[in-house]
Amino acid sequence: MRILKKESIHNANNFSLSEYVNLIDNHRQLWITLAKRDIKVKYVQSKLGLLWSIIQPMTAILIYSLFFKYVFKLEFNEYPYYLYVFAGILPWTLFSYLLNQGSYSLIQNQELIQKLNFPKLLLIGAKALVSMVEIMPALIILLIVTFISGNANYLGWIFIPFIILLNLMVAIIPPLWISAFSLRYRDTLHAIPYLGNFGSWLTPIFWVPENSPMIIQQLTNYNPLTFVLYLYRWALFGDNIIWNGLWSMLFFIGIFLPFGLMYFKNQEKHIIDLI
């Protein structure tokens, strides 16, 4: 009877791709559970709970609208400016949540890693799930507000899930590399605030590329998140898509994502020795 049980081997070799896929597949329930744990732990003792995930983008919208519309007198007439900012803030929130939380996920969960044997990629994977859950309430509000304001591009709405997926794929790249590198070089963690700060300016969240100098436009097009924002605004309000940003996004998703995953896979067995 016992002989029939699946044989497993622990050795020094890196996981092969099929082994790793199997390993993660065996732990897929854990993936969900880790995400649930993250959400629970975050909100367990706050009275407002998930409401906080709305308050954050709302205050950002309020401040940007105030400054850009009334202090800097930004010209934007196609539809209400706050909708433009709202549609930019959402993908950025997802990106920066994953950047900040995902990058630290290995170091934060040292205790878990040192005591339990599971694929560590799930720690970042769980953060990705949480980031999606976190933007959902705000996304629903955005859809409602867009509907009320009469600027909706309903046909585009069906693409939103797909765009969120692209958003996630871009957003998971920095934490994947940073967390894997942070095991050997904690220096990479210092890059996080810079990425966050410069990134929020090099992504057209609250300013409009078409009204900006050519050099700024070109620079933003190297940012893989720029095209994701164009897609959101196209799907929500029917904005024109500026195709120049496409290549950067495809490059990142096609090269940095798979190589990042491979690199992380090959680190899996060393994580506990390095952390």
């Binding site: 497993s8 081997i9 622990h10 050795n11 020094a12 067995k269």
Partner: peptide
């Protein structure tokens, strides 16, 4: 090492179940 938490530098652990 047996639990799989830490990987051995050499050698292997084989088990069923």
């Amino acid at each position: 090492i047996i639990s799989g938490l830490v990987s051995p530098s050499e050698g292997e652990v084989k088990f069923n179940g």
